[in-house]
Amino acid sequence: MEPIMAIVVGLLYAAAIYMMLRRSIVKLVIGLMLLSNAANLLIFTSAGMSRGAPPLIPLGSALPDGPVADPLPQALILTAIVIAFGVLAFAVVLIHRAYNIIRTDNLDQMKDTDT
């Protein structure tokens, strides 16, 4: 399973960077979305994947029976998804406002503040 996930993660990163390098500001935001998803999947994969071993402790005992999946990466990913959602919501509003004010979606024409 890991090799497939590794390829998927790699493809997501590649697609994200490709989109971010386009001129359109909308594609830039799509690139950022893909990037955060790629990072989340990377955490999921690199922390180790295991099937059918939920981290549940049976009633009456203090320790789980045998090895279980690590619940922490999922908690991390959940947090990261929520953060990425908030930040990307801001980014979408920002590009909408930016488009209304600058009247272009071409990043090459947003060079006034560059040096």
């Binding site: 971010m20 500001i25 830039l28 950022l32 990037l35 955060s36 790629a38 990072a39 989340n40 990377l42 955490i43 999921f44 690199s46 922390a47 180790g48 922490l72 990466p73 991390l76 990261a80 930040v87 801001f90 980014a91 920002l94 590009i95 406002r97 930016a98 004010i101 600058i102 990043l107 947003m110 060079k111 006034d112 503040t113």
Partner: peptide, 30 residues
């Protein structure tokens, strides 16, 4: 206008940095 242009760059590069940070945390946790 200048603020919007500046903000697009600021937001993009800082989000990129966060994504790299997050990936590095994932690998370190691994």
């Amino acid at each position: 206008r200048a603020q919007m242009e500046g903000a697009v760059k600021y937001v993009t590069l800082n989000l990129l940095s966060s994504a790299i940070f997050l990936s590095a945390i994932g690998l370190l946790y691994g």
